[in-house]
């Protein structure tokens, strides 16, 4: 099996949500999917989206699936609110524009909040989508075997004809990136834009990322960014590797400007605590950050750095290597 993967550079992510909406207008703004964000960007630290997803279980304990729970629509995902445009704007009175249902949560509810105390508050953006895992818990949990991983690109799909909406997958996914479509009675999730990928067009979230933060290539493509960043430079890491699903979306961890000492002097220590990043990306994050800093320093000394050149990505088109090997499936 070949595996298509994605690296998201959290330093280049500016939290603009263009990817969120690129995905939404491509896939999820109709037919019961309105509340879903197959791709979203959440501010970290925070409860995330769906709310408290990291505490909702799922994933693997060795070879056993861990219990997980289903997020609630209004409280954890957020209702895809419509608004009283008609009564607020075209009728008498001073009724303010408001959501028709009070909003309790949303995909970007904690935008720019983060943690810490002024002036040492900190936050960064974490785009999330289906990880198209090598060991998908969702696949294992489905009693109807409606979930499978494609041989040619490792994309994990929920067969929309087999799925009967039992939602074991929703609970099993430790990233909570599977959504139950109440209108269709089926579960759906990011499909890694396979209809685009099959035509050589990168995923909407990646291609339309104006921060140029996303690299897409096959893991076994040695010239590709995935292989280089994950295996060679080891600066791209999976999110919560301890969940055991072996994700194929990787993250370049975030640098941050130094925190200030009590007198306001820059401390030389990053404002995002190392511990927090270890919680998210595991112990390898230390080495990854050190490598990043070391290569930036090389550049500032005027030396060359193939790693920095790859992350800079001089040509937008070069960030995507979708071509199939000889003899691959059409």
């Amino acid at each position: 099996m070949r595996q298509l993967g994605m690296v998201i550079d959290l330093n280049k992510c500016i939290g603009c949500q263009t990817c969120t909406l690129a995905c939404k207008s491509q896939w999820t703004d109709h037919d019961g999917r309105e509340f879903m964000y197959w791709n979203h960007v959440e501010t970290r630290p925070g409860k995330g989206y769906p709310r408290d997803w990291e505490a909702a279980g799922g994933g693997w304990d060795g070879d056993s699936l861990k219990p997980g729970r289903l997020p609630r629509l209004a409280e954890d995902y957020g209702i895809p609110a419509d608004f009283n445009f008609e009564s607020a704007l075209f009728h008498e009175g001073k009724q303010p524009l408001r959501p028709l249902d009070a909003m309790q949560w949303g995909p970007n509810w904690e935008e720019d909040q983060g943690a810490g105390e002024f002036p040492n508050g900190y936050f960064f953006y974490l785009p999330r989508l289906c990880n198209h895992c090598t060991k998908p818990a969702c696949l294992a949990a489905c009693p109807r075997q409606a979930i499978y991983k494609r041989e040619e690109d490792g994309i994990v799909l929920i067969d929309q004809e087999r799925c009967r909406g039992y939602r074991y997958c929703v609970a099993a996914c430790p990233y909570k990136k599977i959504y139950f479509n109440p209108q269709a009675g089926r579960s759906e999730k990011c499909i890694f834009c396979y209809p685009r990928v099959e035509q050589g067009i990168p995923q909407a979230c990646a291609y339309q990322c104006v921060g140029r933060a996303r690299h897409v290539s096959y893991l076994d493509d040695e010239a590709g960014a995935l292989h280089q960043l994950v295996s060679v430079w080891k600066v791209a890491l999976p999110l919560h590797p301890e969940y055991g699903t072996q994700p194929n979306v990787y993250y370049v961890p975030p640098l941050s400007p130094p925190a200030f000492e009590a007198d306001g002097k820059p401390s030389g220590k990053p404002r995002i605590p190392d511990d927090y990043l270890r919680q998210l990306f595991g112990p390898d994050v230390d080495a990854a950050l050190a490598t990043l800093q070391q290569e930036i320093d090389r550049k500032s000394r005027g030396e060359s750095s193939p790693l920095m050149d790859m992350l800079i990505a001089y040509r937008h088109g070069d960030m995507f290597r979708l071509s199939r090997p000889e003899g691959g499936q059409p």
Binding site: S64, R69, L70, R72
Partner: peptide, 25 residues
């Protein structure tokens, strides 16, 4: 948990089902 009235997927750990054979796929 903070979830009330939530749905629980599994009674406990269990062995996952075998995947479909490639030719079925």
């Amino acid at each position: 948990t903070a979830y009330c009235g939530l749905a629980l997927a599994f009674g406990g750990p269990f062995t996952p089902l075998r995947a479909f054979a490639a030719d079925d796929l």
